[in-house]
Design a protein around this nucleic acid. Structure first.
Lengths: 336, 336
DNA sequence: TTGAAAGCGCTAACAT
DNA sequence: ATGTTAGCGCTTTCAA
């Protein structure tokens, strides 16, 4: 019907209300007082015309777009939607919107995404990647755009960091198993103990030692991050001369594999074998028995990131780079 | 380091390359020929200065922001991330970015979200809601912004619609069960047969009749859309004088409940009882036995939506509202 | 408490 | 093939 261009502009509101565009602007943004009577006429005019301010023009003039860029590997990975929601929990009420880009974890796409965010004049960036070279963030930092890195370890000047506390959550999981009475606790990790996996192994070790237990290297299985990998890893452990009575798996999918291995050997979970995972994916509460696990605090991470971003944006220039560490929560269900 | 404002502008590129800003613009956008030599000098200047065009200014001037609004209830609901990715599959290569808003399915927030999208001058909107009043879309239509509705039924002039084919996918599921040799096929649906659930029941009936089977009303159970609901519904069915040998559940979570009910009665799945679901959530392949289900084609829906949006945007004014129906896919696993 | 005028960075007519 | 000029819709000095 109505063609593209004929949306009312601020000038039409001003005319109808019998004031200047300046006053309409101030009535809308509250940056200087407007008399009650004038304000009412303006509001009426806006209502009558169905006026909606053009945020693009505003952004150009004001140098703030009220937009945050979220750069992630893949929104389809269940961790990221929750993170995005956490971000929005705090950014939304503050008036910011999110623009989301998937990078598939490819470095070229990551760089492109960052360039795009600069071009779009976002006010801040939440950047969730693992293996990005610090140089890739240079252009963003030079452009004066606050960035918060999600996950990963290496701190970088000018870049705040938010991540979960892998080490202490592994320790907490181990303590839970110990407390419940299990004696031979095994850890099933990925192909190599690197990245977050390494920290989890460290937490597992620390909790064992703190309880006066020896750490038996045979009880650490290296395998694939998959259901089959989990089943194979636990299978190997159960063939040991002194098999474990509890296994802590590096993620829930592997823990589901552990359940498979137990079922195959007619072991009862948690009586003959306790199983714990990490992440608390949806499926964790859907399998039988339901998985006891450490919830990956994705939402809290997103919220912390949002808070950090807002602080940086308003501070113009803040202090040193911050590191925020979010603890994981123990979710007790049936498997341990 | 560098303060906010001193990013290079197009004029500086022009100066360094010894041409006018106009020529730089055209070298970038290809809307008019630029000699090879000039182009090279421009590209060099851009490289040297680290220039990135200001998309906000471009959007204001050109009246196109290259931005699409995605309005959904909750990105945390596993259906929507996949949808969002499908959208991006086709929109990304065309140069569009997505801005995402969650409405929690609340009408007020939906209206607010739409207003925001108008204010942000998005070039198109993907709107995933169920119970919105057609009036709520008026402002968007009046603003000349193409909208595609995702899911829901009621067609509305000026609004294209993309949704999955619930009826025929239920029919296909039923036929699969029939073909495999099951005789007494039950349907476990929600508290009432309305919305998509009604269509699934219709498809189930149609397939039964088409195969010459009677439709026994006792074999349709009404229950909650939850795991416990599914277990209860199937439990009731199994207590019938002539219990079913197969159950089709309105979603995967209920089907997992059906698995619980079977386990409780020591029924083997799929030998004693076949179980099927809808959606193909992640957990469907993680439970034991793995669930046979009809995959909700979220990604395809997103892609179709993206294509529609691009068509509408480029056409200036297109023809009548279109309805695109995406068929679901049968995912054969172990439970049927 | 309110206005007038300038300008954010870019693209599109209209020139040549 | 390239340049000049005007202006997208708003906010912000500066002035009253």
């Amino acid at each position: 019907m109505a063609a593209r261009g004929d949306r009312p502009r601020i000038g039409q509101v001003a005319d109808l209300a019998g004031v200047s565009a300046t006053t309409v602007s101030h009535a809308l943004n509250g940056r200087r007082p407007v008399s009650a009577a004038t304000r009412k006429r303006i509001l009426d005019a806006i209502e009558q015309l169905g006026y909606r301010p053009n945020v693009v023009a505003r952004g150009l003039r004001a140098g703030r777009t009220m937009t945050i860029g979220l750069v992630i590997p893949d929104i389809t990975n269940p961790f990221y939607p929750v993170l995005a929601r956490g971000l929005q929990d705090v950014l939304g009420p503050a008036g910011y919107d999110e623009i989301v880009t998937n990078t598939n974890g490819e470095r070229d796409l990551e760089r492109l995404a960052l360039d795009k965010m600069i071009s779009r004049q976002v006010d801040g960036i939440a950047f969730a990647v693992f293996h990005t070279h610090p140089d890739d963030l240079r252009p963003v930092i030079d452009a004066g755009i606050p960035v918060v890195r999600l996950g990963g370890r290496q701190a970088q000047p000018g870049v705040d960091l938010v991540h979960s506390d892998d080490e202490s959550s592994a320790a907490e999981a181990t303590r839970h198993l110990l407390r419940t009475g299990y004696q031979q606790i095994a850890f099933v990790c990925g192909p190599a103990a690197e990245g977050p996996a390494a920290e989890r192994v460290a937490g597992y070790r620390a909790a064992l030692q703190e309880a006066g237990h020896a750490v038996d290297p045979d009880l650490i299985a290296y395998t694939e991050f998959s259901r089959a990998g989990g089943a194979a890893g636990v299978g190997g452990l159960l063939d040991l001369a002194r098999p474990p009575d509890a296994v802590l798996c590096a993620n829930d999918v592997m823990a589901i594999g552990a359940l498979d291995a137990a079922r195959e050997r007619s072991l009862r979970v948690p009586d003959d074998l306790a199983v714990m995972g990490f992440d608390d994916i949806e499926a964790a509460s859907l399998v039988s028995p339901q998985l006891t696990t450490m919830a990956n605090p994705a939402r809290e991470i997103g919220q912390a990131c949002g808070r950090l971003l807002i602080d940086r944006i308003s501070d113009a220039v803040g202090g040193d780079a911050t590191e925020v560490i979010i603890p994981a929560r123990l979710i007790r269900r049936q498997s341990a």
